[in-house]
Nucleic acid binder design. Structure first.
Lengths: 158, 158
DNA sequence: GTTTTATCGTTTCAAATGAAACGTTATAAG
DNA sequence: CTTATAACGTTTCATTTGAAACGATAAAAC
């Protein structure tokens, strides 16, 4: 008798597919309209939260690989969207922040991302949205207990 | 005034991180214990649902790239876990199914995956689990409407 | 029946990835 | 002070990735 593993009722599987679809749908938009790759968008949006940040801050906040962050930052700096300055007290750190151009772009991108999310969430009631956040937080806390010591969250987990 | 995009309340971002963490936690287990890579596990688990399947069936069911499926299938066949036979009526198709060894391995892996999922879901009540599935299904249907025509779901969506 | 056209799975190749090594700077230990 | 250890960000390099080209088969159009 085979074990009853119903894949479409298996959380890791469904979560992966949902996450991919959501990322793709969104990525298609800002790729086409703003020329940002996914890693670039992640870095950019993270800086929208708080500035300045070091590369390592961004690694921690996004669960991205540090090499990937380094490359995304370089592209953003080259594109004139970020300023990169040495930290005055610790020369190992970078102080990353929006350039003027970056701030302008963020002012365009962020509302659009929010609007898109709003469309997506429009299928849920307020109660359901609250449930969704609560459930995701519970799961995230639970799975955090399981993850072996600070293993980097690589991309190719599919 | 900056647009208020709170990243940790932004669904695509949180979904991505949760999905990564879940996949990683699980992957670590079957990688170490059974020597299966993530793509291999996906193919393997899909065949656990239904047999025989063609490579293309697996592509559709898993949202994986067809080149990746092709490579994973080859490794599984080489490892003696799958049988690959030509389809009698359509020579383009493969008939993939578990070998004897594959069936044995599945009998080991599947219960373990289910048990692990059970541990993860143990933080949720029955009601909450039902909510989770309902919410995910709503979101998935909604996002499916947004996805441009049959764009493949690539891996590097992060 | 012959000629498109489409489908399946593999292979190719350029790009992306991430683990490890590296140079640099800071901190801790001696 | 000097040496050893740690942290930050970049670079290197082998591997993985996936878009596109491909060969082979089947279906559709003519």
């Amino acid at each position: 008798m085979p074990p009853d593993l119903q894949l479409n009722r298996f959380l890791p599987y469904r979560l992966n597919i949902l996450s991919k679809k959501v990322s793709l749908a969104l990525a298609t938009r800002y790729q086409e309209r703003f020329g940002l790759s996914i890693p670039e968008w992640r870095v950019f949006a993270t800086l929208g939260q708080e500035q300045p940040l070091s590369s390592n801050d961004i690694v921690e906040r996004t669960a991205m690989d540090k090499a990937k962050v380094s490359r995304a930052v370089n592209r953003l700096v080259a594109a004139g969207l970020l300023d990169r300055q040495p930290h005055p007290r610790d020369q190992r750190l970078l102080r990353l922040s929006f350039s003027h151009k970056g701030r302008d772009l963020y002012a365009q991108v962020a509302p659009e991302a929010l609007a898109w999310e709003g469309q997506l969430l429009s299928v849920l009631t307020d109660t359901e949205r609250a449930q969704l956040w609560a459930l995701m937080e519970k799961l995230e806390r639970r799975v955090a207990e399981e993850i072996p010591e600070s293993v980097p969250l690589s991309d190719s987990l599919d």
